[in-house]
């Protein structure tokens, strides 16, 4: 009973129980994913027999890659996400600049109409949007998958908030130095909004890397199908593929994003947080 005061507090039973609860929950939470790793790196007879000495193998990955063109799907996803983010950044920057700094006639109504997209995402309107895409001749193209998302209400909203908080004096200084409308935007507003661009970029990349329903409706060939759609077809119960192979295909599909997430955890989590504080 001679322990110093802070030590008794550390030994507080409630604290200990909380720490224990946190770890039990964490192990429970991560176990489905760990299990997928286990299954992917072992041959199928070990899928349900856990044995620390079971030999590791890459055979499941080889098999998955030989049965479906996952590399091509990965390239499609990469092209989709890159093209989409690039267009989103340009289109949203221009619109956000207009809302933040040009008090044009009808801007309030226009802004309210932009916000409608926050609720009515393009995938809700698959029926009509598919019709529109068909009339544009863009069915089964990567552009077609990306097009409805290029003007993002969320991006416009975030950038408008950021642009509005940029000090007016900086803009005036740039104008005195002879910058025009785009000069001011490019030299003053865009550089100061870098954290917002990062946050928006990470949210957009993870959202579209994982998006499924709309790409499923639009894509119809190996050349356009993104990873999620390829995986959805591969994993369908009627395809009768071995469990270990499905696990490795699943890991292949999520690996790029998962690795990026593990490397830049803080930025990812902060971006998601940022995205919620509207």
């Amino acid at each position: 009973m001679n322990l110093p005061a802070h030590a008794t507090r550390n030994l507080d039973l409630a604290d200990l129980l909380q720490t224990l609860a946190a770890w039990v929950l964490a192990i429970l939470w991560i176990s489905p994913l760990l299990y997928a790793f286990w299954a992917a790196f072992h041959s199928s007879e070990y899928a349900i027999h856990f044995n620390v000495f079971a030999p590791l193998t890459l055979e499941n990955f080889r098999e998955a890659l030989s049965r479906a063109p996952f590399l091509r799907y990965g390239l499609n996803t990469f092209m989709l996400v890159t093209m989409l983010l690039a267009s989103q950044l340009v289109i949203c920057t221009l619109a956000a600049y207009a809302f933040a700094r040009y008090r044009f006639a009808g801007s309030n109504v226009a802004f309210a109409l932009v916000l409608v997209q926050l609720m009515v995402a393009p995938e809700i309107l698959i029926v009509e949007n598919y019709g529109t895409l068909a009339s544009l001749g863009l069915v089964d193209t990567i552009t077609g998958i990306g097009l409805p998302y290029m003007a993002s209400a969320f991006g416009i909203f975030l950038l408008r908030q950021t642009f509005k908080s940029t000090p007016r004096e900086l803009e005036e200084a740039a104008r005195l130095e002879g910058c025009g409308m785009f000069g001011v935007l490019w030299r003053v507003y865009v550089p100061l909004a870098r954290p917002t661009y990062l946050a928006y970029g990470l949210v957009s990349i993870s959202h579209h890397w994982n998006n499924f329903l709309w790409p499923l409706v639009v894509s119809n060939s190996v050349e356009t199908r993104p990873l999620t759609v390829g995986l959805g077809i591969f994993g369908a119960p009627e395809s009768g593929v071995d469990w270990s192979i499905i696990s490795s295909a699943t890991l292949l599909s999520v690996a790029p994003l998962l690795i990026a997430f593990l490397l830049f955890q803080r930025q990812f989590i902060q971006s998601f947080m940022h995205s919620g504080i509207k």
Binding site: L33, W209, N211, T228, L231, G232, S247, L258, F268, F272
Partner: peptide, 11 residues
């Protein structure tokens, strides 16, 4: 959270 729903369903 970072995984696509399709991958989660597969697992």
């Amino acid at each position: 959270t970072i995984l696509p729903m399709i991958a989660v369903a597969n697992i």
